[in-house]
Amino acid sequence: MSKVRKRGEQIRQFILENVEKYPSDVAALASQEFGVSRQAINKHIQHLVEQKALVATGSARKKHYQLHPQIKWMETYDLSKNLAEDIVWDADIRPLVKDLPDNVKDIWAYGFTEMLNNAIDHSSGQTVVVQLERTAIDTQIIIYDDGEGIFKKIQRELYLHDERHAVLELAKGKLTTDPERHTGQGIFFTSRMFDEFAILSGSVHFSHQFSEAEDWISGESDFKSGTAIFMKLNNNTSRTSKQVFDSFSSGDDYAFTKTVVPVRLAQYGNEKLVSRSQAKRLLAGVDKFKVVVFNFAGVDAIGQAFADEVFRVFKRQHPEMQLVCLNTNQEVEQMIRRAESTDP
């Protein structure tokens, strides 16, 4: 392959990989990255439009570009007719991703079947809609059921105060309302395999990005009924499902021994994390793990009683556990150190 052709492919790949983030500025970005004129970049963009890799919208001076869907597919399934996730995968989804690398197909097989099974076994809905869209760069799938809503169900069955508490319990990784048939690990591992993962249900929007591996985000949503799960993955990622499992496992038995807990989800509304009851809410169920990473992103301060309950009382009750803190500011760090150094 000539150097000119190779450079042209590099430029076009760069455009495809950055167009979603910079839909109107991707030409300027590529021009700066490769040190070539905007006119030269525009020729590459036009080539991608002609190949139906990109879609152009807007006027000549205000062009916007986006990835062109190579595949757009949707199907509605009846949840009352003995629906089986593996059958849907084999018959409908796998043919749409059959040419992707094996590691990518493995991730899709795990994530899709786990999430569809949740809808089948837990939603109490009538139908589930599956949508798939594939571009030259990535594939995304949305699974939407018309049931009770995942966070509302967890809140109801575990007698929790609100849906945000349900998100906190789900984020820890071993929550299930049906322990006879489920381990509660499916959502945890699925969320960490994909580039982007989100659940919209009720008043809660719950998302995770692989590029921010230790960061869970929860915000307000107006998704009034059912549950929608969104998964997105680069078509050529080098990631494997085994790598993700291994990063939260230890020992020869590959037991699920590590979790990441988003501390700010222990808050209700605008309250501050100051009390022992809030700390106990945070700590519920984490004794199932050997390593617990407390992610303090979005937490500006914690109170003495909260810190003492987590980092003195709980820590001394469970000396075999490793507690790790992440994204702490100076004020939070000082309160943690104070609790750890306090004599009983």
Rank of each mutant, 00 (worst) to 15 (best):
K3R: 12
K172N: 09
K98T: 15
L265D: 03
L16A: 11
V4F: 12
D138H: 15
M115Q: 15
Q51R: 08
L48H: 08
R281T: 08
D287M: 05
F34E: 08
L116E: 00
P179R: 15
G219S: 05
V260N: 05
I302K: 01
I143C: 02
E309L: 09
I187P: 00
F311R: 01
K72T: 14
V4N: 14
W73Q: 04
G269M: 09
G285R: 02
T113A: 02
R7A: 09
A198P: 02
A119D: 00
L273E: 03
F197K: 07
E9P: 06
Q322I: 11
E85T: 01
F210G: 08
F210E: 07
F197Q: 14
G251P: 07
K43Y: 08
R61G: 13
F294P: 00
A213W: 06
L170H: 02
E50D: 11
D90M: 09
M193I: 07
Q322L: 10
A255Y: 11
R7H: 10
M231F: 12
Q334Y: 08
I71M: 09
F294R: 02
D106R: 13
A266P: 05
G149S: 11
L326H: 05
I217C: 05
V130C: 02
T139M: 09
S31I: 09
V293A: 06
I141P: 00
V128G: 00
V313G: 00
Q70A: 07
V291Q: 06
H182Q: 14
A119V: 15
I141D: 00
F112P: 00
G186H: 13
T177E: 01
K290C: 11
S2N: 07
Y65E: 04
L16K: 07
G111F: 00
E212P: 06
V130Q: 01
Q39R: 06
F248D: 06
S59H: 08
E180A: 13
S241Q: 07
T257A: 08
E271S: 09
S80D: 12
P23M: 04
R94Q: 13
T127I: 13
N270G: 08
E220M: 02
A27W: 01
D308A: 06
S238D: 06
H122N: 13
I217N: 05
E148D: 15
D86G: 06
Q155K: 15
L79P: 02
I150C: 14
D195L: 11
R181T: 12
N42Q: 10
S249L: 08
V167Y: 03
V291A: 05
N295I: 05
N234P: 02
V292G: 01
